[in-house]
Design a protein around this nucleic acid. Sequence first.
RNA 1: GCCAGCAUAGCUCAGUUGGCCAGAGCAGCUGAUUUGUAAUCAGCGGGUCGGGGGUUCGAAUCCCUCUGCUGGCUCCA
Length: 516
Amino acid sequence: MITITFPDGQERQYEAGSSALDIARSISHGLAKKVISAKVNGEVWEATRPIQHDARLQLLTWDDKDGKMTFWHSSAHLMAEALEAIYPGIKFGTGPATESGFYYDVDPGDHVISSDDFPRIEQKMIELARLKNEYVRKPISLEAAVAFFKEKGDEYKLELLEKRKEEAADITLYEQGHFIDLCRGPHVPDTSYIKAVKLTNVAGAYWQGDENRQQMTRVYGISFPKQKELEEYLHMIEEAKKRDHRKLGAELELFMFSERVGAGLPIWLPKGNQLRDRLMNFLRQEQEKRGYQLVTTPHIGKKELYVTSGHWEKYGQDSFRPISTPREGEEFMLKPMNCPHHCEIYGHRPHSYKDLPLRIAEFGTVYRYEQSGELHGLSRVRGFTQDDAHIFCTPEQVKEEFLNVLDLTKVVLAKMGFENFTAQISLRDPETPEKYIGTDENWRNAENAIIEATKESGLQTTTELGEAAFYVPKLDFMVKDALGAPGSWAPYRWTTTCLTVSSWNTLAPITCRTAR
RNA sequence: GCCAGCAUAGCUCAGUUGGCCAGAGCAGCUGAUUUGUAAUCAGCGGGUCGGGGGUUCGAAUCCCUCUGCUGGCUCCA
């Protein structure tokens, strides 16, 4: 017998080899029908996988995030089975669950999959789901797995296996119906759990996220245990469309775009401009209260300015082309960021430590060449105005200044009604130090300042390695949109960075930057 | 930039395999009605079918190209 401990601390005895589903059945039949998968000692397992030893057990249903992920992952396999039935010889990349559904990256060879094919694929999925095929977990040796996918001719899976040589002992295949996939699992017990499916989108996606490699066809979908839930989901999508800022902006005559002016260049109409003014006045007041001094800097600047700052080397090829003048060798750039200008203001005259902290703020309009496929309403544009501030202070003042910035951020977010926001600390990727400028010491100091200040302010944060900018760690505030739909982030990002390098001054202060 | 789509009246859209002067609803305008809270009646105006090029006796419809848009990928100072 084994002892199973439930989340509420209750313990019960079961025969060794009982599955989560067996255990659920012993509690109630209704519960057993809802169980999708289970957390065994914190790891998500199939509900049907035998538990051999004492364990902590949490049954997962549709109401649990991990339950949904299991469900959607199984749906990805079901879609793969349908795709393979419709397009024989199709090759498979990876097919995970996402925050809101699932996708599978496939290489359909000569076929082109478009949204016109969705109804057919959906129909096939439902047809296969009704067969109630079990998802069978099959531990396998690396060699046997390689042999299998060689035979099948799926080079993408072979590449994935190549990467997993280290963990050769843990390789598993999953089989349902006629489809066998390399997969860690877990899955729902059988395909009949999936009652409703909707393919939502098809898009290109680079294999292994590398733009120099093969582009796969990524098919997105979402699925539900009940038809009604699909309908509710579709309704929510409709509601979200009604609230789309692009639709509202046009209807309310807030802003417009013009083909003749150019893509990604918003034109603010009178009503929209009133909104802008109100927002700017509010931000101005809050900043003046906190000792910021407002400045205005030009829209273009000499190329050398950005060469000095390092931005040219990093982003020059992605920026607008330089603007040349009749004077030989002279080039200007449309201002892509305000930082160098603010540093110029600091360096304009010698400073005593008594001048610090010096807080410079500007509503600075900047221009950046964004790839054509990136443009999106007002959230990704080629010209926009940043509320951008730089704080010049001594190393000792960094933490306090950072706390003040956090306070300002919270005040603004609260005033704007953003109650649900997340804060993400973006640090260097320790694996690729060559991507970053500055000394290790400065990086450590800057990263610690962010970590300590956020901790001290009681802010809930997540930490991402490798998400830092090339010259600074960042703290990003991200807010949810009006519907709070999962995975759908408002175009509102508040970035606070802590800069420690500057070639513009003799005092070598720390520069804190806050842009939103 | 890459992949898949899309672009017809102010808005939402019809327009099957290329073939009478390109249509509907709503909005607008004019007139009638005066019935109390989302659309009463009649009439009218409005479209280089995104731009350019090509195939054809003939293109909104097929091909090429440019521009813009949508959803992803990559990028995001």
